[in-house]
Design a protein around this nucleic acid. Structure first.
Length: 551
DNA sequence: GGGCTGTACTG
DNA sequence: CAGTACA
DNA sequence: GCCC
């Protein structure tokens, strides 16, 4: 590209990233927060001239504070082709990107959100029962939000009517899990029991291929974490909805002996162990693992050698060990920021002038990070282009940018061979584009799962609600909407009418019934109380220790 | 005896 | 279409 | 596995 105006030194990808990360985690030691600094120093020493063909993922960060030269050349050339008449500064506006903070949307992971009041126990009875708060409490409008909001006031939101026959659901809102608030701390005994039930659930899902037992057990596990009182006698749970006699028996055994005979037996079989191992690979579920096992494959290594893997599975297998390790919050921040910086550069590359980049799109950390958790299993970033420009190919371009800046990137979806195979289905058919991949920032030890989802602005609030989770929370809220006669998804709320007879009993509308600008508005439209992201969790901190025999 | 959330991507 | 994955 |  050639270095025009060297003194107006553009802030490089890494410089921008560094500023953002430091700002967000003033408390974490610098070298821990910015491991790529060492990497950068090393690469700066090596001259910038060996920087040509980089094997994927090993791009070199040329000196001089800009990203790898080939990237710039290619980028400028392609831009030039698109906009032959633009002046260079117009073409590459990010060169003089102001060092401002980006979107408000990223703020408010709200780990610090005030805990809700509360409150009374309840022996609870209901599906998805809650520990819940007053139904009638006034809806607080200006509560700190996270969704990026219209600022204009809008007319009062009239909740959708409950079209069900008996109206049980809407009269018992507080009994739904999506209206509960997560218990922050819970008796260690309950957490022990919950962990055991989760193991049982995991077994039924991965080995038993029994989705519904999985659902039942993991729901019970979540409820145990939410209980405010300690389970001392399994029979206490009979009064809690979703615990039946069989589960109570299991819990009685756990309380008495500290283990479940049945679980141990089930887990000890060769088949169970093999499936547990094989299903760790991304793209391998119970069915495929079973097929492989039937062919004598009992390890990931053997599966790789068998030649039976798809492209996605091969990538998954390559990194499956790294991916078992949780990601500290500060590293999640760094990865999200990297995506955000790349997004801004990409928008710049598409002709958005520097002063408009802030409003032209955003990258919002979602998932467990937004729920305030100290570590995450993967990194979820919600993308949105807001200036009316095309977002076609945006994800691919962001990833290319990061690659060129030296980030190691491996695709699970959008794999090149895959894309070629499916001929130009270039126009995406769905209204949401959904990427899964594996990345590693330079200087970091481990590869991490990255999920990107790109939505049109009108879907943003619904998408954020979905992508923030948790799993149980989403299912509960959607189930609630369904009970009222609607269907809630990451795109909106539509009518869902139960038809008599037929197996496929539900007829769904296509027209979104409500254009929500914020998450709050969605809750309100469904007649529910707003729940902060940090209160949509499943995990809990123990109070004290479980009795010794249970550890 | 059937429902238990709704959507995207792969092959 | 079935299988897997995402929250 | 639980609930209607």
């Amino acid at each position: 590209m050639a270095a025009a105006q060297p003194e107006a030194q553009p802030s490089s990808f890494w410089q921008v990233l560094e500023e953002q990360v430091l700002e967000e985690h003033p408390d974490v030691p610098r070298d821990q927060l910015l491991p790529w600094e060492a990497w950068e120093r090393k690469h700066r020493k090596r001259s910038c001239d060996e920087a040509t063909t980089s094997e994927p993922g090993a791009g070199s960060n040329g000196g001089g504070g800009s990203i790898a030269e080939p990237f710039w050349d290619a980028l400028e050339a392609s831009l030039r082709a698109e906009h032959p008449h633009l002046a260079r500064e117009e073409l590459l506006p990010w060169l003089k990107l102001p060092r401002q903070r980006r979107q408000p949307a990223a703020a408010a992971p709200s780990a610090a959100a005030p805990p809700p009041p509360d409150d009374t126990d309840n022996g609870g009875d209901s599906d998805y029962e809650a520990i819940g708060s007053e139904e009638d409490e006034a809806f607080v409008a200006g509560s700190s939000d996270s969704t990026r909001a219209g600022t204009q006031p809008r007319a009062a939101i009239v909740p959708l009517p409950d079209t069900s026959g008996n109206r049980w659901a809407s009269r018992n809102k507080h009994k739904w899990q999506c209206q509960s608030t997560t218990t922050k701390t819970a008796p260690a005994t309950n957490l022990f029991l919950a962990d055991e039930l989760d193991k049982l659930a995991a077994h039924y899902k991965a080995v038993g291929n029994d989705e519904w037992r999985y659902f039942a057990f993991s729901k019970q596990a979540k409820k145990l974490r939410d209980l405010t009182w300690e389970v001392t006698d399994a029979k206490q749970l009979l009064s809690v909805r979703s615990f039946g006699q069989k589960s109570v028996d299991k819990i009685a055994e756990l309380l008495a002996t500290g283990a479940l005979r049945r679980l141990e037996t089930m887990q000890s079989t060769d088949r169970a162990q093999a499936l547990a191992e094989l299903t760790k690979v991304h793209g391998v579920g119970c069915k495929i693992a079973s097929d492989w096992y039937a062919k004598g494959i009992t390890s990931v290594e053997a599966a790789v050698q068998s030649g039976l893997m798809t492209a996605t599975q091969r990538v998954g297998a390559r990194f499956y060990k790294d991916l078992q390790v949780r990601i500290p919050r500060a590293e999640v921040t760094a990865i999200v920021d990297a995506v955000r910086v790349a997004l801004r550069a990409t928008l710049g590359a598409r002709g958005v002038p520097a002063h408009a980049i802030d409003g032209a799109g955003d990258a919002t950390a979602s998932g467990s990070y937004r729920r305030g958790k100290p570590s995450s299993g993967d990194v979820d970033v919600l993308l949105c282009r807001r200036d009316g420009g095309s977002d076609e190919g945006l994800i691919e371009q962001i990833l290319e940018y990061m690659k060129a800046a030296g980030v190691s990137v491996h695709h699970l979806t959008h794999e090149e061979e895959v894309q070629r195979g499916r001929a130009q289905r270039s126009v995406r058919t769905a209204t949401c584009s959904s990427y899964r991949g594996i990345i590693r920032l330079p200087g970091y030890e481990l590869h991490r799962r990255l999920d990107l989802k790109l939505y049109p602005p009108e879907d943003f609030a619904y998408a954020l609600l979905y992508f923030t989770g948790s799993d149980h929370f989403n299912r509960s809220m959607r189930h609630y909407a369904k009970t009222l006669g609607y269907s809630l998804s990451d795109h909106g709320i539509v009518h869902a009418v139960k038809m008599a007879g037929g197996k496929d009993n539900c007829v769904r509308g296509t027209k979104n019934l409500f254009e929500a600008r914020t998450e709050q508005e969605i809750f309100e439209k469904l007649g529910l109380q707003y729940v902060e992201p940090s209160q949509r969790n499943t995990d809990v901190v123990p109070i004290g220790d479980a009795p010794r025999r249970l550890q």
